[in-house]
């Protein structure tokens, strides 16, 4: 190759590399657009709300006076509703996912179920709210309660849990399954000794991501009848007179963080908007904590899984 050919080759490579550079810049811009939007939003909320965040804000009930108002009933409501959601969605979702992967025969019937599960993830959340209003509130008579809200959100995140479970199970190499079956294990022994333990990191991640979505849901919770102003907590077990039962709190009226925020943003006074920003800051913090927990748990659990 002579000097001139070498020169033109280098020029060609340089012109090809311009596309690498161009796409790199575009990619960073696209990434920034998403990240910066969130950062700007979060920063704005922090600036407006930070002045309101103190212990009193967390331990006070809502009030007509913005300066005295707090989010006690909202965050307690959110935590309790999430507890119900997790208790309902995890066993149902994991069982469904395990069944579809390890037990179900492959035929047209299970194909239809699979398509349905995937589609459920795309159903608007307000539809779940209407379903829950009809089913849980009116048909089952569970009332406009923490139980109803928790079950509604459980339905909402069930597809997420099922899909996460199935994907985690599919990541287990077939040769591990065969090794277990070759030891004389039944399908149930393979599932309980191997499949579920080895996929627990992926399942947990899916559950927490689902929960992080559920904690910010407003529409279905309003539909089933959460209160917008509530100045008492659900009864703790074995307190009050007459003494509350172990599960009485499940049937108590409630509110949740996004509804509290929604309520405050609709007020004309500037001070309530600051309250809303402060509540939003705490809600985002709760979500980020859950996501962080998911990452940490995944790391912890995967450390002991090597194929």
């Amino acid at each position: 190759m002579n000097q001139q050919e070498l020169q033109s080759l280098r020029a060609l490579i340089a012109s090809h590399k311009r596309w690498d550079f161009l796409f790199g810049v575009l990619g960073v811009l696209a990434l920034m657009l998403g990240v910066m939007t969130f950062v700007a939003l979060f920063a704005d909320m922090t600036i407006n709300g930070i002045g309101r965040i103190n212990i009193d804000f967390l331990t006070s009930f809502p009030s007509r006076r913005a300066a005295n108002a707090g989010i006690l009933s909202a965050w307690v409501g959110s935590v309790l509703v999430m507890l119900v959601t997790a208790c309902a969605a995890v066993p149902l979702g994991v069982a469904a996912g395990v069944y579809l992967e390890e037990y179900a025969p492959k035929n047209w019937f299970t194909d239809i179920i699979e398509i349905n599960v995937t589609n459920l993830a795309g159903v608007p959340s307000i539809i779940y709210g209407l379903l829950a209003l009809g089913l849980f509130v009116y048909t089952f008579g569970l009332g406009q309660s923490i139980l109803t809200a928790g079950l509604t959100l459980a339905l909402l995140i069930l597809p997420v849990v099922i899909v996460a479970t199935r994907e985690a199970i599919r990541a287990i190499p077939q040769i591990i399954r065969e090794g277990a079956y070759a030891c004389g294990a039944t399908t149930w022994q393979v599932v309980s000794d191997h499949i579920v333990p080895y996929s627990s990191a992926g399942i947990l991640t899916g559950v927490i991501i689902g929960m992080a979505r559920a904690i910010g849901e407003t529409a279905p919770i309003i539909t089933v009848g959460a209160l917008t102003f509530i100045a008492f907590l659900p009864p703790a077990p074995f307190t009050g007179d007459p003494s509350a039962g172990l599960f009485d709190w499940l049937f108590a009226p409630f509110t949740v963080m996004p509804i509290q925020m929604f309520n405050w943003t609709s007020r004309p006074e500037r001070a309530f908007l600051d309250n809303a920003a402060a509540a939003g800051f705490i809600l985002v913090l709760m979500t980020l904590t859950m996501n962080g927990l998911a990452i940490w748990l995944r790391y912890r659990l995967r450390k002991n899984i090597k194929w």
Partner: peptide, 27 residues
């Protein structure tokens, strides 16, 4: 299952379970 309890198998690629050495043998 009865057949596999009487006849053991070793595979092409080593496939230890992601468990301890002890639990692998004890399975």
């Amino acid at each position: 299952i009865e057949v596999r309890m009487r006849i053991s198998m070793v595979f092409q690629k080593p496939n230890p379970f992601p468990k301890s050495i002890y639990e692998n043998v004890a399975y």
